[in-house]
Design a protein around this nucleic acid. Structure first.
Length: 233
DNA sequence: GCGACAG
DNA sequence: ATCTTGTCGC
């Protein structure tokens, strides 16, 4: 058997995964490619069933100017890694990668449902995914894994730096007045200001980015469709 | 040793 | 993440 490149090595123990993250983070580039033009942005997500071990993953590509979907792809893959805080990418990325291979339209940026550098080892799922696909990426999470931040204004667009061990690892961003902020951090080939700007741009109305919302609906639809097919057996 | 802990 | 009903507020 060929030894898989480390960035796509999934058959590891949690302990090995941690060691892998420490090596992979050396490859991270925390700045956008010079002259990056963002015309298409993709959202990635997975959905699972309570007692089953199949994960349904998908990506939806949106036109940034109109936020209209222009492409999508999904895949069903057996889960081989448990949910462990800090090791989310080893559970979800194999599924998202299968969908990525079926995606015919390449986005300029991928937004993941989870952390980027706002991670104990600066290697959240957005970092790992960006490295894997070789594409600029952003992490946009609904809750914190690590870090603290001060209060932020009530208005949409308000921000507060997310601090962890003396470093700014991300930004708490209010995407909508009167709701809890989301937590934005760069993944790969990305910086924090660019990430925050883009997340606000693709979140004009709801708390979460339209990319994430579309991806979430896609993978849930895939899971339900699979469940209905199973009922007819 | 104790508590925290993306999805 | 998923399992689940109603409920509060714009």
């Amino acid at each position: 058997m060929e030894l898989q490149p480390e960035v796509s090595r999934w058959n590891v123990t949690p302990s090995e995964a941690v060691a892998l993250q420490r090596r992979l983070r050396e490859q991270l580039v925390l700045s956008p490619p010079p002259g990056l033009k963002v015309e298409r942005v993709a959202g990635a997500d997975i959905s699972t069933e309570k007692g089953k071990d199949t994960g349904f993953g998908g990506l939806v590509v949106l036109d940034v100017a109109t936020l209209a979907p222009v492409a999508r792809a999904g895949a069903a893959v057996t889960l081989h890694f448990p949910y462990v805080p800090g090791l989310l990418s080893f559970r979800e990325l194999p599924i998202i990668a299968a969908a990525w291979e079926r995606l015919t339209v390449r986005p300029d940026v991928v937004i993941f449902d989870g952390q980027g550098t706002a991670h104990p080892r600066r290697m959240g799922i957005a970092c790992h995914g960006g490295l894997l696909f070789g594409v600029p990426s952003i992490g946009c999470a609904k809750s914190l894994l690590v870090g603290t931040h001060g209060p932020l204004g009530e208005a949409r667009g308000s921000t507060a730096p997310l601090m962890h061990r003396g470093d700014v690892v991300g930004m708490a961003v209010r995407t909508r007045k009167g709701v809890q902020p989301v937590y934005v951090s760069p993944g790969h080939l990305m910086d924090l200001p660019t990430a925050v700007d883009l997340v606000l741009k693709v979140s004009p109305k709801y708390r979460e980015p339209e990319t994430t919302r579309h991806a979430h609906r896609l993978v849930n639809a895939l899971r339900r469709a699979d469940g209905e097919a199973a009922e007819l057996e």
